[in-house]
């Protein structure tokens, strides 16, 4: 049994009175491709934001490679409002900013593409290397770090070649077609040298052919970079093709988990997606 890379424990995210993620427990093991699916508004992106530190959860914790990286409990205003479970189980506040979580080795992409718009494809990838720089302000300004700079540039060129983006290296990133912009975003995430890659709807807005390409591609980068992949997706073809395991989220609660076959035959999942008829 391989060890788990990511473990989310009793995570609850409550905005005012709305419980967006309710007592979520999930594990992602090393080398796996795990999907998180669910109807619109189920709380998938919120779950991602809790994991990557954009939001501190209202209660619960997140483990990454055996270390507790995020922990929170209802306090302050939330103390009175809190509707979730496991109240009182946690007593520490660990809420790192997203950049520190990325530095630990967890990189993400965004549902609505967020590339740096005035930069070229190459620069987009190169900037993502900034967090691994060892040079300080002085040595960077006076070019005392040219060895490191050169190495970073070579790594970026290599990455672009693997991602089949070397043809558009010097184009403005936002001038590319949609599918390629997605790939630039993945390349940018890979440039931070992650162990766990979080993809937020990588196939959103893609046509079937692009989706097929992406499916092959995700498997390829997993093997190439020895990654663990955790993704949110709506395209069931893609999810069923590449996932080792699937979690299903509905109204903030995990309603099912298992292999693609198990999920396909799970009555609760079918109900969540298609609805339950009243006269049944």
């Amino acid at each position: 049994m391989s060890k788990n890379v990511l473990k989310v424990e009793n995570a609850t995210m409550q905005f005012g009175g709305v419980v967006a993620v309710d007592n979520m427990n999930l594990e992602v093991n090393e080398g796996e491709i795990v999907s998180l699916i669910g109807p619109n508004g189920a709380g998938k992106t919120t779950a991602f934001n809790v994991i990557t530190g954009v939001y501190a959860p209202s209660n619960g914790c997140v483990w990454f490679e055996g270390d507790k990286i995020v922990e929170n409990y209802p306090h302050g205003k939330m103390q009175k409002l809190y509707k979730g479970q496991n109240n009182g189980k946690y007593s520490h506040i660990t809420a790192p900013t997203p950049d520190r979580i990325t530095k630990l080795g967890m990189a993400r992409t965004f549902q609505n593409i967020r590339l740096w718009k005035s930069q070229t494809v190459f620069e987009n990838v190169l900037i993502a290397k900034h967090l691994r720089t060892t040079s300080n302000l002085f040595s960077a300004t006076f070019r005392l770090n040219h060895a490191e700079e050169k190495r970073q540039r070579e790594e970026c060129d290599e990455l672009l070649r693997v991602m089949e983006l070397d043809g558009v290296r010097d184009e403005l990133a936002t001038s590319l077609p949609y599918g390629q912009q997605r790939r630039v975003e993945i390349a940018r995430a890979l440039a931070t040298q992650p162990k766990l890659l979080l993809l937020d709807e990588p196939a959103a807005g893609m046509n079937p052919q692009e989706t097929d390409e992406l499916t092959a591609f995700i498997g390829k980068i997993r093997d190439n970079f020895k990654l663990t992949v955790f993704l949110i997706e709506h395209h069931m073809d893609l999810v069923m093709d590449i996932s080792d395991r699937i979690y299903v989220l509905d109204f903030g609660k995990l309603i099912a988990s298992g292999t693609p076959e198990e999920i396909q035959n799970n009555q609760r999942v079918i109900d969540a997606y298609l609805g339950v008829s009243n006269d049944a």
Binding site: T52, V54, T97, P98, D99, R100, T102, K103, A107, R108, F110, R114, L115, W116, K117, S118, Q119, E123, L126, I127, A128, K129, H130, L131, T133, S135, L137, A140, T141, F142, R143, N145, E149, Q152, R188, A189, T192
Partner: peptide
């Protein structure tokens, strides 16, 4: 000018273009 063309200058430009993405890519905003 040297600073702007260095790795730190590029990080500044990333913050200008998209703060959320910059933070998610490991650039310490503060």
């Amino acid at each position: 000018v040297l600073l702007i063309n260095s790795t730190y200058g590029r990080a500044f430009k990333a913050i200008r273009d998209d703060e959320v993405a910059a933070e998610a890519m490991g650039i310490n905003l503060a």
